[in-house]
């Protein structure tokens, strides 16, 4: 799952090397903390949050298949 989040984020930003995705197992769900270069934050979030919503939707679909809950946060 972490690899999927990383693939999605890396394919959307300019500074691929600056992408960092941390996985945390919280009670009942996995939480992914995504860090990108400051200049890429807007690109990752997208107009009216459209892009980050799309990323979350795809990750959620993958999680649903595995029967787990996930959260993707940009920090």
């Amino acid at each position: 799952m972490r690899a999927l989040v990383e693939l999605l984020v890396r394919s959307l930003v300019d500074e691929v090397e600056a992408v960092d995705v941390q996985e945390h197992a919280d009670v009942g769900f996995f939480r992914y903390e995504v860090r990108v270069a400051p200049g890429d934050v807007g690109r990752l979030i997208g107009r009216q949050g459209r892009t980050i919503r799309a990323v979350r939707q795809v990750v959620r679909a993958a999680a649903l298949k595995d029967g787990v809950q996930v959260r993707v946060e940009v920090v």
Partner: peptide
């Protein structure tokens, strides 16, 4: 079919991301 989602939401999300990428 896991890629379609409710009302095609996952499909739309996938399409949005692939277009950007």
């Amino acid at each position: 079919k896991a890629l379609i989602g409710h009302h095609g939401q996952t499909l739309d999300a996938l399409q949005h991301v692939v277009n950007l990428a």
